[in-house]
Write a protein that binds this DNA or RNA. Structure first.
Lengths: 343, 343
DNA sequence: TTGAAAGCGATACCAT
DNA sequence: ATGGTATCGCTTTCAA
């Protein structure tokens, strides 16, 4: 038998109500005064029976759960950082995380039904497609389940969102390279339709312009998105190297930077002596890349925390839809060096 | 107003009970027959009101939740793979994942209380310390919450566990190197007190012995566990290189292999021409290491799935405590090559 | 200071 | 074929 308030009440010879008051500590401060001998008796029996409040039953009664759903793609260690951020921040307020993994191909109607069925306090999501997100919104707003975006590449004026400041992050990479004397800096990235790539490219452009460096459409290299380094990607990178002979490159992500490193190595280009490379994200493995990667670190954990706070504000009635943009940090490792004066 | 069975019953002019039967499809097959016009009326109204069953209330009544807790350290993309495996397998049976991140320093009593309070159907955990695990067991078994271990380095005879077969995985790496003609193969790993490192080292030893390769205590190099490549780690790796001049090395993990690559590069040792390196795990980034890493792939996703099935067996009464060991796979990339005949 | 009782939303047995 | 009603474990108002 598992202990309930009833079983405690029986053992203590008091009513369920009294047990509830005592166990919730609501006999202090309220106008509810309970004899301290009753209090300690109840507490002792609860302890004895190993009582543990049934949060499920409580949720039914109060009409609110303390569960936050995380909906979206779960990929890469950085996602875990975000999740940990949300979880840690949420834990301080008694919230738990329920996971709803969703790919682009996932039926979001079903996810929405599940979220609603679980009576989630809110949903934090990332990397859904625009259609998925809108469907989710449609299904959830009738149920009064607020949505917050985290690390999501698109902004929506109906929804708060926590992200890192990628525009300035990418700009800071250019600034650093420029301070190292580089002038021929190219940008290599994936599909620019993907929001973050765009933002980082824009930051690169802004940096180039601000520091008086020449760039044109040709100094951008868009490679296929593919975790592996395919022959086609190799060719794309080789082409721009041979055509422009850059002394430095900023990349749309760490994985891209690592591919660039491989191709450069194959071309016998020495890093960082002949070519400086800067990644983007600060993923765990960037530190053990060969050579260790200079990169722009995104504060994933903090992004997660802020997403939770956005949710919290939301349910407290002070909904903001302005983006929370967290600053990035450039970490300098061994893939960058001052430009060689004489080539 | 959010729809309830009551609101549907009112609108349809029937009782809650009828609505419950209809909405749960329990009017088919059971001896409960409900007029199909009533059925379709109820269904239409439910649809109209956007009814969505309150799983929380249902859980109170039935006394069972469909939530599985994942307790433990959340680190690295491979953890996400495991979680996805658990989640996907669980989803087919209607289970959800609740996250309870726990570090070695986390108060596990509190986690246990939360798990119990949430009335979890079961708990799947990994990377807890032995003491944490025992405490969790103590606190949870009285509540009839079963525990399953996933990717956990220690075995316990009271607890089912899903892992990859690291002994044979490490052995297969040696086998491959041996087939490439290598004879001077060393093993570089972290702290051998960490269960998996031990297992992989044992697999290495078994392989060396089986394929008639000479090894001794000296052919093992234990480096500090540290994500970064510290000067001390550099020194440790350099020392064994210089002392033994191996032609190949198997590593306890992918990150270790990548550190070895860096040090080798710094020593101007060509990979794979002068030195073959094999990692362990098959982490996402091993494919973009420089050079791409030959490594032993662990089936993390499948390990997660199997962990769920162990849980499921457990609650179905057919508890097994024997390990489920999943086979690894050696993937050959560019960090290995046949040994040079003439040095 | 304490207890009785209503109610949260759902399930399921027993009548009708 | 359908409804009444007790129940799950907890919260909370109202009386005593």
């Amino acid at each position: 038998m598992v202990a309930t308030m009833q079983s405690i009440a029986d053992a203590a010879g008091v009513s369920r109500a009294t047990v509830s008051y005592v166990l919730n500590g609501r006999h202090i401060g309220s106008r509810m005064k309970i004899n301290h001998v009753t209090v300690s008796k109840v507490e002792k029996i609860a302890e004895l029976q190993g009582y543990c409040r049934n949060e499920i039953a409580r949720a039914v009664k109060t009409g609110k759960t303390n569960a936050i759903g995380i909906v979206g793609g779960l990929s890469g260690s950085y996602c875990l950082e975000i999740i940990k951020g949300i979880s840690d921040a949420g834990a301080t307020q008694g919230y738990f995380i329920k996971l709803f993994p969703a790919e682009l191909s996932t039926d979001i109607e079903q996810i929405a039904r599940q979220c609603a069925g679980q009576r989630l306090a809110g949903v934090i999501c990332s990397s859904l497609s625009e259609e998925q997100l809108h469907l989710l919104r449609e299904r959830l707003e009738g149920k009064h389940i607020p949505i917050v975006l985290v690390d999501n590449c698109f902004h929506h004026d109906w929804c708060p969102r926590a992200i890192s400041d990628d525009f300035n992050g990418a700009k800071s990479a250019v600034k650093y390279l420029s301070s190292l004397g580089h002038r021929k800096i190219i940008h290599i990235t994936n599909d620019l339709n993907f929001g973050f790539s765009r933002l980082r490219y824009d930051g690169y452009c802004a940096g180039m312009d601000e520091y008086g460096l020449k760039r044109d459409a040709g100094s951008l290299c868009v490679i296929d998105s593919n975790l592996e380094l395919t022959e086609s990607i190799r060719a794309q990178i080789r082409e721009i190297f041979l055509r422009l002979k850059p002394t430095a490159v900023t990349c749309g992500s760490d994985p891209i930077a690592m591919k660039v490193i491989i191709v450069a190595s194959e071309l016998n280009i020495k890093i960082p002596d002949d070519l400086s490379i800067i990644g983007y994200a600060g993923l765990d493995y960037s530190v053990i890349s060969n050579p260790p990667l200079t990169t722009v670190i995104q504060p994933f954990y903090e992004v997660g925390r802020q997403a939770f706070y956005l949710f919290e504000k939301n349910i407290n009635g002070s909904k903001t839809v302005a983006d929370v943009k967290l600053p990035t940090e450039l970490i300098i490792r061994n893939s960058t060096a001052p430009v060689k004066k004489f080539l």
